[in-house]
Simulated assay, not measured.
Amino acid sequence: MGALTDDPAVREMTFIVIDFEGTTPTGHPPQPTEVAVLALKIRPGGGWERVGAFESLMKPPPFAPLTAADTQQTGITAAMLADAPTAAEALATLDSYLTAGPYLLVAHHAPVEGGMIYHRREDCPVLSAIDLIDTILLAKHLLPHLENYRLDTLLDHYKIPRPKDRHRAMADVRVTAEVFSRLIADAESTDSIQTLRSLKTTARRRAKASNPVQAGLF
């Protein structure tokens, strides 16, 4: 391993790769229908170790029904969601596992995942306070020659096979985790990012729930 993964702050950190699938109802923020996470740490001898995983379908509220387009993209059907927990229940369960930080979330196009979490912050107060590492920002820094930074483009660049269930949350989390590990390896091979602090400077999206609330005007 290199300087970045030798940084004690990186070795202490648990990186939680996260992905949501959801519906986009008119007049409302996106509503989650599925969430998946993989928790990663650097092994004492080097390399990545998966230390936890979670996935759950979620029944959307009546104002945000699953559409035919949603099903076509993800393969998730209304029948699959009929007996699923609500988002409040699923995210509260996920939140209850977050007891051994420090944590950073990792997501591809993190504002989407961050927004989904923020709108459910009362259900997952621990999760909603965790900053995110955006693999798009990291890839733009390390791979400035790419035509675009869509997840499929990065999979092609790194010759990572696309899973058959691409656009399901756990499948996307697994390939995002692989992309993240390859980006970290690139950062080490070029010495362009050598500390957790510089990683955050390059690719962090702050958790919206951690932003100070402006005092009301009198």
Rank of each mutant, 00 (worst) to 15 (best):
T5M: 10
D6G: 15
V10E: 11
V10Q: 05
V10H: 05
R11H: 02
R11S: 05
R11I: 09
M13R: 15
T14Y: 01
T14H: 09
T14F: 04
I16S: 08
I16L: 07
V17L: 04
V17S: 05
V17E: 02
I18F: 09
I18R: 07
D19N: 14
G22M: 04
T23R: 09
T23N: 13
P25V: 05
P25A: 10
G27E: 01
V35M: 04
V35N: 10
L38G: 10
L38N: 14
A39Q: 10
L40K: 13
R43G: 10
P44M: 02
P44R: 06
G47E: 00
E49Y: 00
F54K: 04
P65F: 04
L66R: 14
T67F: 09
T67A: 06
A69T: 13
D70F: 08
Q72T: 12
Q72F: 12
Q72M: 12
T77S: 12
A78Q: 14
M80R: 01
A82E: 15
D83G: 02
D83C: 00
A87D: 07
E89Q: 15
A90E: 05
L91H: 04
L91A: 01
T93F: 12
L94T: 01
L94S: 01
D95C: 04
S96E: 03
Y97L: 11
T99H: 02
P102C: 07
Y103I: 07
A107T: 11
E113I: 00
E113T: 08
E113L: 01
G114H: 00
G114C: 09
Y118S: 09
R121D: 00
R121Y: 00
D123I: 00
V126C: 11
V126P: 00
L127G: 04
I130W: 06
D131A: 11
I133V: 06
D134G: 09
D134A: 09
D134V: 08
T135F: 03
L138C: 02
H141M: 09
L142I: 07
P144M: 03
Y149I: 13
T153L: 09
T153E: 11
L154E: 05
L155C: 07
L155G: 10
Y158A: 03
Y158F: 10
K159E: 13
P163A: 08
H167N: 06
H167G: 08
R168I: 02
R168N: 07
D172L: 03
V175D: 01
F180C: 02
R182K: 14
L183M: 09
A187V: 03
A187I: 05
E188T: 03
T190D: 03
T190G: 01
D191S: 15
Q194D: 00
S198H: 15
L199Q: 04
K200D: 05
T202E: 07
A203P: 11
A203D: 12
R206Y: 13
A207F: 03
K208E: 14
K208T: 09
K208C: 00
A209N: 14
S210D: 15
S210I: 12
S210G: 11
P212V: 05
P212M: 06
Q214A: 15
A215V: 11
L217E: 15
L217W: 14
F218Y: 15
